[in-house]
Computed example of a mutant assay.
Amino acid sequence: MNIADLRKSYEKAELSEDASHADPLQQFDQWLKEAIAAEVPEPNAMTLATVGSDLRPSTRVVLIKGYDARGIVWYTNYQSRKGRELAGNPFAALQFHWVELERVVRIEGRVEKTSDEESDAYFHSRPLDSRIGAWASPQSEVIESRTVLVTNAAKYGAQFLLKPPRPPHWGGYRLVPDTWQFWQGRKSRLHDRLRYRLDGGAWVRERLAP
């Protein structure tokens, strides 16, 4: 099979200005809830794109852990590659791809750390193994083998028992959107694509050619 010959006709739904919300957060809330209801695989998974000081972009998949009028929240190791890149350039992009619904949501904006209180609350809601894992993994660093992780997990498990504190290098980020895009696949590659951008504190909704 020639990969260039792979084709799919997108015909599940449409996205019109009349049927969409004027507020992009409401539109996102609707689409995320529909993705969850449709039981698509990992509807909370989103690709995070950052840019380093060398101007090379990098992406990885993270999980959304909250959203409201303040922005989109996820949690990670602040010393990881994405943490280092965000420290030097606090702008990023997120993308959700719900393949089964033929939908994509793209979000861009400035990133800030969540408060210590928010990070503490979420950390202590995690399963014990995940809390120990936050201590055990020197994320993005070169390690000799998986044995390093297993040994670290055993060490911190013995040290903290059932009450590991939140590591100082671990916590939340919040992307504060200034641009949203909602993409709905349509037949003949004439897809629906609505962009919301901030203009003077108000959201402007406009259609983009696919």
Rank of each mutant, 00 (worst) to 15 (best):
D68K: 01
Y196H: 02
R186W: 08
V62T: 04
Q95L: 11
Y196S: 04
A69N: 05
I3A: 11
K163D: 15
A158R: 14
T59F: 07
R7V: 04
Y10H: 12
A158G: 13
L15Y: 10
A37I: 06
Q139H: 14
E39C: 08
M1R: 14
L161H: 13
Y10P: 03
Q95D: 00
L149G: 00
R189S: 13
H169T: 15
N77I: 00
M46G: 03
W98H: 01
G109S: 02
E17G: 14
Y122L: 11
Y67R: 05
G52L: 12
F182Y: 03
P165C: 12
D54N: 14
P43C: 09
Q30F: 12
E11L: 11
H169G: 14
E17C: 06
K187I: 12
D199K: 07
S53D: 14
E141K: 10
I143K: 09
L63W: 06
K187F: 00
A93W: 02
L149Q: 00
N2I: 08
V61K: 02
P24W: 01
K33S: 13
Y75W: 09
W180Y: 14
V105H: 06
A153P: 07
E206M: 01
H21F: 15
R146K: 15
R81E: 15
A37K: 15
L48D: 08
D178P: 04
R7C: 05
I64Y: 03
D199W: 01
L149Y: 03
A87W: 08
V105N: 01
Q79I: 10
F28V: 11
R189L: 11
Q26P: 01
K65Y: 12
G200Q: 05
T59I: 14
S140W: 11
A154G: 03
L55K: 13
V105F: 04
A45C: 13
P138L: 09
H97I: 07
S115T: 15
D120W: 06
A4Y: 14
R110L: 00
Y75E: 03
T147K: 15
S130V: 10
L55C: 08
E206R: 02
T50F: 03
R106M: 12
T76K: 02
V148E: 10
A153M: 06
N44Y: 11
R197N: 02
S53L: 14
L32F: 15
G201M: 02
M46Q: 06
S53Q: 15
W98D: 02
A13I: 00
E85M: 10
A209Q: 13
T151M: 07
G66A: 06
S9M: 12
Y122G: 04
S16K: 08
E112P: 00
I72G: 08
T47L: 06
S140H: 12
T114P: 09
I72D: 04
Y67M: 10
